[in-house]
Amino acid sequence: MSRTHRVIPGLPLTLGYTLFYLSALVLLPLAALALKAGQMSAPEFFRVITDPVVTASLRLTFFASTLAALINAVFGLIVAWSLVRYDFPLRRLFDAVIDFPFALPTAVAGLTFANLFLKDGWLGGFGPRLVEGVNALAGLTGAGPLLPSGALDWLTFPYTGQTGGIVIVLVFVGLPFVVRTVQPVLLEWDPEYEIAARSLGAKPATIFARVIFPEIAPAWVSGVALAFARAVGEYGSVIFIAANIPGRSQIAPLQIVTRLDDFQYAQASAIGVVLLAISLLILLVINGLESFSRRHERTA
């Protein structure tokens, strides 16, 4: 590399520009945050971030983000696998809509899910709505109501205002991260190993666990980590569906906003610093994991 260093031009220009732009627009603002939090004494800072309401909000944020990341880990893998390996109706449509959460404003996502998971929403009142729909269709064909009303009243998901609602929107915003990291690796995977393993009599489950999974694991982990990091910071969609009760259902970013509204800038910054430190840690772990797996690949 040191040889190309001298031949390829433009390092001072591009690196200088990169560092300037990065410093002016990202590092300087983030330094302002650290500076503001730094105005507090250490015990004061500690008191703010260990306030029971704050710790409760951090716990909720991490609990909901972890749960959402786990759901995405499982279903994201299933989705990526199905899209790459199996043909089924509307496969290309389903592939195209994976990126939808990247493109839909989070506030709209929050509003939509809050509506869907209301007591009488499409999904919140899934059972009763289904009965209604089926009976309406039956009515069109002239037959009487097929299902007795109340037959499916137990099949409801009234998650608006519940922790379940928070998890649902976090699954939504994180899904593409997992699918889009695993998918390219699966696409590049050469099935010859699989055919060979099969001819040696290995079972499909064994092949997946021993041959395929190790190959996609680094990408899968980094996708899940990105989904998790995104969920930790998510605000716009969550506040529309959460109940926002202090100490019970307020996420950490909302704690920041609440402190700001109370003119507590330093406190808000302190919570911001905690979130930022965790994000940075996650990113360093991801990038470390990747360079580790790259080295591993090369030596293998």
Binding site: V53, G247, D262, Q267
Partner: peptide
Amino acid sequence: FADGGIFDQFYKPAN
């Protein structure tokens, strides 16, 4: 309503 005021005390989690 100030930080640590009566309203905040309503919502102190049990632990």
